[in-house]
Design a protein around this nucleic acid. Structure first.
Length: 270
DNA sequence: ACTGGCACCTGGGCGC
DNA sequence: TGCGCCCAGGTGCCAG
């Protein structure tokens, strides 16, 4: 489900409701996520105080005085604040019950998400080799250009590679490539420095704008406060194959790159 | 070192 | 109404 803007929207939504709270207990109804929820998690976290809610790539880091919960929402996950005594629905796999009378509830029909524990999350194998945050100063067109030399992978797959830059998923990859006027199937190594500078700028702009809009609501995405995102009203290509380009009217085309559906405009993207 | 392909899951929408 | 098929926001891992 969520790309970086959605995860950031969730982070901002839950932060004010959990910061400073103590975890009374953790209810694990289904531990079979992408990786099993550690059996010792409830015992280890009982009584811990939440001191920060951070994000790295698409991972949420719930930091406590006893260590950190690493949460990924996969394709279909969500985190919501609920009343601690509210009845769980299907796929409500984990509750962090807080001393405020609320609970942070992890819901994930497809179970591609995860909930792990670490005392040094940034050194965790899943996070240790990630590239820079797209909204940080470490990310720019020169980096894209440098890392792409000699690579034959499509530029779209390249910018979705977490070692290159994190947080660019299928929606925003397509949108950024459209905005930069770059064809998704172009070999990464054949894209010029000029184009990469434009692409990096568009990746930043599109992600930042999506965060401002509260993320993109597809199907049932809602932020931690239950409000939907509005970015879908600004999509130029994602999900619009066969429809006219919003800029030039040309019929948008679709292809598969790295097993992911990709929509592009043959007129606007060269 | 790279690349493409598969895997993990459930649910919604479609054609028949 | 039911069944089978395809599709979906992610990403680790495998063989070649």
């Amino acid at each position: 489900m969520p790309e970086l803007p959605e995860v950031e929207t969730v982070r901002r939504g839950i932060e004010p409701h959990v910061l400073g709270c103590q975890i009374v207990h953790i209810v694990v109804r289904e531990s079979r996520l992408r990786w099993p929820v550690p059996e010792e998690l409830p015992e280890r976290m009982r009584g811990a105080t939440l001191v920060a809610v951070r994000r790295r790539a698409k991972y949420l880091l719930l930091e406590t005085d006893r260590g950190c919960l690493i949460v990924h929402l996969g394709m279909s996950g969500s985190l919501r604040m609920v009343a601690a005594d509210s009845a769980p629905l299907q796929h409500d796999h984990v509750d962090l019950v807080l001393d405020s009378g609320m609970a942070l509830r992890f819901h994930d029909p497809r179970r591609f998400g995860c909930m792990l524990f670490s005392v040094a999350p940034l050194e965790h194998p899943l996070l240790g080799r990630l590239g820079p945050e797209p909204l940080s100063d470490d990310f720019d067109g020169e980096r894209l250009y440098r890392l792409s030399r000699g690579r034959s992978t499509p530029v779209k797959s390249f910018i979705m590679d977490g070692q290159v830059v994190v947080g660019v998923g299928n929606i925003y990859a397509a949108e950024a490539l459209f905005a930069a006027g770059v064809r998704p199937a172009t070999r990464a190594g054949a894209v010029s420095l000029t184009c990469y500078k434009r692409l990096a700028a568009e990746i930043r702009r599109v992600l930042a704008q999506a965060i401002t809009q509260g993320g993109t609501t597809l199907r049932d995405f809602v932020g931690g406060d239950g409000r939907p995102g509005y970015f879908q009203q600004k999509l130029f290509v994602y999900g619009r194959d066969g429809l006219p380009c919003r800029v030039c009217g040309t019929t948008l085309r679709r292809l598969k790159l790295g097993q992911r559906t990709t929509v592009w405009c043959p007129q606007c993207q060269k």
